[in-house]
């Protein structure tokens, strides 16, 4: 929820104060992301491998896997999501507090993967807004870490003055699909999703084509 009163945090142009506050707030948010591991299948095992000592997600401020959505900042949807699980995923997303981010880990979560079948959601972006898609089947732990760093980079570009528009979410949309019928149809065309690569990427603003900037000290 952004503050929409005009003034320091209002919609005006950024001032010295707001940019510095932004910097501090973003720094704090970025470095203490608590992931909500929504692990269903193979990707969950790689997520566990990332959390174990060889890859050690804790180095990035993700020490605590938050199994309760209400204390989590970033939803990592790792694995395939059948329609039977879709309302559960939506419920968990709705239960998470703002600000929140979502990572779609792996091919199945991002597009349905090989499972272009009757029971599978063809990409969780039809259900919840996704910030970062991680390709791979499953992605390596390095991939997950890279994706999380992209989220961190995205956070560092956020501003309290633009917060309201960036993270706007209609409270009435709780429990409803994120994509409309036409969009779902476009995404999951008659020949499967492999011919339809356009995603609902309106929210993904990071254009990190190379390695994200090293984190500030």
């Amino acid at each position: 929820m952004g503050l929409d009163v005009p003034g320091i945090f209002g919609t005006g142009s950024p001032t010295f104060l707001t940019t510095k506050v932004d910097f501090v707030v973003n720094w704090a948010r970025r470095n203490s992301l608590w992931p909500m591991p929504f692990g269903t299948a193979c990707c969950a095992i790689e997520m566990m491998a990332s959390a174990a000592s060889n890859y050690d997600l804790a180095r990035f401020g993700m020490e605590r896997m938050s199994f309760s959505p209400r204390q989590a900042d970033v939803l990592i949807c790792a694995g395939r999501v059948p329609y039977k699980l879709a309302p559960v995923l939506r419920r968990i997303w709705d239960q998470m507090m703002q600000p929140k981010w979502c990572i779609s880990m792996g091919a199945c979560a991002s597009s349905g993967g090989v499972f272009d079948v009757y029971s599978m959601v063809q990409g969780i972006d039809t259900i919840v807004p996704v910030d970062v898609y991680i390709p791979g089947c499953p992605p390596r732990p390095e991939g997950l870490i890279y994706g999380l760093m992209m989220v961190q980079e995205k956070i560092s570009g956020e501003s309290l003055t633009r917060h309201a528009e960036l993270r706007a979410e209609d409270p009435d949309a709780a429990g409803k699909p994120r994509a409309g019928d036409a969009q779902v149809r476009d995404l999951t065309g008659p020949f499967g999703n492999s011919t339809q690569q356009n995603r609902l990427s309106g929210l993904v603003e990071t254009d990190a084509t190379e390695r994200p900037k090293d984190r500030l000290p």
């Binding site: 329609y83 039977k84 879709a86 309302p87 559960v88 939506r90 419920r91 272009d116 079948v117 009757y118 029971s119 959601v121 063809q122 039809t126 259900i127 429990g175 409803k176 699909p177 994509a179 409309g180 019928d181 036409a182 779902v184 149809r185 995404l187 999951t188």
Partner: peptide
């Protein structure tokens, strides 16, 4: 059929309409 009888949009809508 492999992809089910309903359209994907209908399947998504029905799925999300359920209360777990």
């Amino acid at each position: 059929p492999l992809r089910g009888r309903f359209s994907r949009a209908e399947q998504t809508r029905r799925a999300l309409r359920q209360n777990p």
